[in-house]
Simulated assay, not measured.
Amino acid sequence: MRIAVLASGNGSNFEAIAQAFEKQTIAGELVLVFSDKKTAYVLERAEKHQIPAFTFSPKDFLSKKEYEEALLDLLVDHQVDYLVLAGYMRLIGEGLLEAFPKRIINIHPSLLPAFPGLHGIEDAFDYGVKVTGVTVHYIDAGVDTGPIIAQECVPISATDTLESLTEKIHQTEHRLYPEVLAEIIHAEE
């Protein structure tokens, strides 16, 4: 299986995935990283791991459709089988959904369907729930509405701050995401 990671920022989940590929706990090949942000730190992380990295902005195109067509061309050129979203902060459009049916995977920092969207950790913390978590799911046309693959709970203690909860969520993500990807890819072999 040939995997591409799409990310918009720091790339800490990409780092965990890249390390899992290097340790061969995930079968297949991590063939490229793409970012819609030209200054995203994930691009430096990709270079460190010697993974080809590409970037262009939606602002470089007249429409979202043209942007995604250019991205799809890149993915087809690299014979990508799966897209793994790791902090990719854009909604996936119809063209990519059709090209990769049930082959676009995302991680979200809450127990979906609770707290979808951009601020899952903060929303759970502010709401005062006692348990939140991490969800790995397939992407569909909605916002964090695709079929759930795996979830793991993260308790919120009375002494947690938003920062400490964020760290607990990230630790869970960095362990869970590579495990789930390894299972999915192993099942495909």
Rank of each mutant, 00 (worst) to 15 (best):
C153V: 09
F61M: 04
R90P: 11
G120A: 14
E179R: 13
H137S: 10
Y67K: 08
E98Q: 15
A18G: 03
E98C: 12
H119M: 13
L91V: 13
K102R: 15
A46H: 00
F100W: 11
V42F: 03
G120C: 06
A53R: 02
P101Y: 15
A46N: 01
K102C: 13
I139M: 13
F34V: 05
V80M: 10
A20T: 01
L91W: 07
H119F: 15
E183F: 03
Y41H: 05
P116Q: 11
E22N: 10
K59P: 02
H49S: 01
G120S: 14
T25G: 03
F14D: 02
P52G: 01
V129S: 04
A40F: 00
L72Q: 12
R175C: 09
L112E: 07
L6Y: 10
E179L: 08
D81L: 07
A7Y: 07
T55Y: 04
E15V: 10
E68C: 04
D123K: 04
P147C: 12
I51G: 06
E98D: 15
T132M: 05
K168T: 09
T132H: 02
L91I: 15
T135F: 09
L112I: 10
I169C: 07
H174M: 06
K48T: 00
L62M: 04
T145A: 14
H170C: 06
L74H: 05
S57V: 06
F21P: 06
H137M: 12
G146A: 12
F54Y: 15
V136G: 12
D160G: 05
V42N: 00
E69S: 09
I26Y: 01
V143Q: 12
G120M: 06
V80L: 10
M1F: 04
A141R: 14
I105D: 10
Y82A: 12
S12G: 06
A124P: 09
L32N: 04
P52L: 04
L112F: 05
T172L: 12
A182M: 05
L30Q: 02
S35G: 00
S35A: 00
A27V: 04
H49L: 01
Q24H: 09
A27G: 08
L91K: 14
S157I: 05
A86R: 03
G128I: 12
K59R: 10
D60I: 01
P147N: 14
L112A: 07
A27I: 01
R2W: 09
A187Q: 11
H174C: 03
L97P: 12
Q19N: 13
D140A: 12
F56Q: 03
E29L: 02
K59E: 07
T55R: 00
E69Q: 15
T25D: 13
Y138R: 14
D144V: 04
